[in-house]
Design a protein around this nucleic acid. Structure first.
Length: 485
RNA sequence: GUCCCCAUCGUCUAGCGGUUAGGACAUCACCCUUUCAAGGUGAAGACACGGGUUCGAUUCCCGUUGGGGAUGCCA
């Protein structure tokens, strides 16, 4: 039997990282076993579902490269099937109409809680006939769940979990307005879609028991369940808005690469020995449910950052230049051919120093800035001394006629100059760096000179010598504040 | 309250009865060095507790504690 799994988000908000990981695990599981991965939008709650959320979820999944093997199924469009299933259940005596009001239900729960018994619907309409129905009250339809015995969920991750049927109440299948609830639609749709394995967050573990009984009542085979542990926030609680960045799109905006995100998500609750950097191909080859852990994990931004730094280094320079261009544009730097050329030529040194695309863009600014440069933070003090400026002027004179403008030639010329001045190389390099980049932190100075080109270097040197640089600007927006030396 | 799940360094984890309890991130040193990174080397850092079972428990069982989840006409 071929494996069919699905990711079934409810479009009541953005795609958060927990959902993204669930999708990833499903997708990986299908790919690994040569099965199919489907997408189903659980939008039976018409009040809270929005088109924007659907778009955000699709967009996030797309960005992560988790593509569905078939067009997405919209649950709301399948109401007919759900209602039909309820009719069958009603006919077979597996369901009944319940006329209890919302107030009554609340009272029931409060009473149960006070008595210390499971808070659940008391089943008072289980065996009452329609004749007793109060007037003008539209009934909800409830499942007639088994009241004794136990339901066993054989879970691929959690093992065998036993529930006392006395704990499980008669869940609502159809609301009073005739719309299906989640509990009903998941089961009907999973049956119709031929889902063989249900991989989802373990906040659904309890539901698995109730759904198991529904599957049986519907005469269907119960799929295999795999409830994966939740991802928690830094405080150890279930992820919510108050945990800061939780949406996939937020991470995208922070400058993370999808491959880094996937790698990070993959390693939450799943491991393959000591492997940390895992490619998409390896993930497919290695992933299986037996290696999924059972304890909740916290999402660690530092790890993501480290992974992202790794994947940035692995990306070709041209690709990174393309990724950074729009970020630079947003900062007001529209790249011309020269700018683009410099960004790509300087990418080697740039990408060594960035953990996010945002940092990469911030650090690349000096390559596309127009003269005279605006000095960063307190960098100006390196250029404040008149003797230093004259030194820079002499340096310009020393390199202006250089035969070749490559890094090796630049280095030997600059070192020779420093020697001639009786200065340690650092005494020359740092003012030079500030003159050329406007800051005290940058890629290797010879690389910078090479990328900038002779004219620009000479021009920036002259600006510095003449004291033409502009006063400091606001500090960078790097995740890691740039260190002052 | 009731039910369910979980428990190895700060974090993510390896471990599947006998290990100097391993790796990664973060931290701290040192090396390299034109700054910052990167890289290299090293350090510090964990089996929640109590009972069993066993020749032997991080590992198996029970309990305690702690954390989480579910208790909806949300999903």
């Amino acid at each position: 039997m071929s494996i069919i799994v699905r990711f079934a988000p409810s479009p009541t908000g953005f795609l958060h990282i927990g959902g993204a990981r669930t999708a990833l695990f499903n997708w990986l599981f299908a790919r690994h076993h040569g099965g199919r991965y489907l997408l189903r939008v659980e939008d039976t709650d018409r009040q809270r579902s929005t088109k924007e959320a659907v778009a955000a979820i699709f967009d996030g999944l797309d960005w992560l490269g988790i593509e569905s093997d078939e067009p997405p199924v919209f649950q709301a469009e399948r109401i007919g099937r759900h209602q039909e299933a309820v009719r069958r259940l009603l006919d077979a005596g597996h369901a009944y109409r319940c006329y209890a009001s919302v107030e009554e239900l609340e009272a029931m729960r409060a009473a149960a809680k006070a008595k210390g018994v499971p808070a659940r619907y008391d089943g008072s309409w289980r065996d009452r006939g329609v004749a007793e129905a109060p007037e003008g009250v539209a009934p909800a339809v409830r499942f007639r769940a088994p009241q004794s015995g136990r339901t066993v969920v054989r879970d691929l991750v959690q093992g065998e979990v036993v529930f006392d049927n006395g704990q499980l109440d008669d869940m609502v299948l159809l609301r009073a307005d005739g719309t299906p609830t989640y509990m009903l639609s998941v089961v009907v749709d999973d049956i119709d879609m031929g889902i063989t394995h249900v991989i989802r967050g373990d906040d659904h573990l309890n539901n698995a028991a109730r759904q198991t009984n529904l599957f049986k009542a519907l005469g269907a085979e119960v799929p295999r369940f795999a409830h994966i542990p939740l991802i928690h926030g830094a405080d150890g609680a279930k992820l919510s808005k108050r945990h800061g960045a939780v949406s996939v799109s937020a991470y995208r905006e922070m400058g993370f690469l999808p491959e880094a995100m996937r790698n990070a998500l993959l390693r939450l609750g799943w491991a393959h020995g000591d492997d940390e950097i895992i490619s998409a191909e390896q993930a497919v080859a290695w992933f299986d449910l037996d290696a999924v852990g059972r304890s909740a994990a916290r999402f660690d931004l530092d790890r993501l950052l480290a992974l992202n730094a790794h994947y940035i280094k692995e990306r070709p320079d041209a690709e990174l230049a393309g990724l950074v261009a729009p970020l630079l544009k947003a900062k007001g730097f529209d790249l011309d051919a020269t700018g683009r050329g410099r960004i790509e030529a300087g990418m080697g040194g740039l990408k060594q120093r960035a953990r996010t695309l945002v940092e990469l863009a911030d650090n690349a600014v000096f390559y596309v800035e127009r003269r005279p440069l605006t000095l960063k933070d307190k960098a100006g003090r390196h250029l404040a001394d008149d003797a230093v400026r004259r030194m820079l002027e002499r340096l310009a004179g020393h390199i202006v006629g250089l035969g070749s403008w490559d890094e090796a030639a630049l280095e030997s010329a600059c070192r020779a100059f420093a020697g001639g001045e009786g200065l340690g190389f650092g005494k020359v390099a740092q003012p030079l760096r500030v003159a050329l980049t406007g800051g005290t932190v940058s890629p290797g100075i010879f690389e910078v000179m090479r990328v900038l080109g002779r004219d620009e270097v000479l021009g920036r040197l002259e600006d510095a010598a003449q004291g033409r640089n502009l006063a400091e600007r606001q500090g960078g927006r790097n995740l890691a504040a740039p260190q002052e030396d």
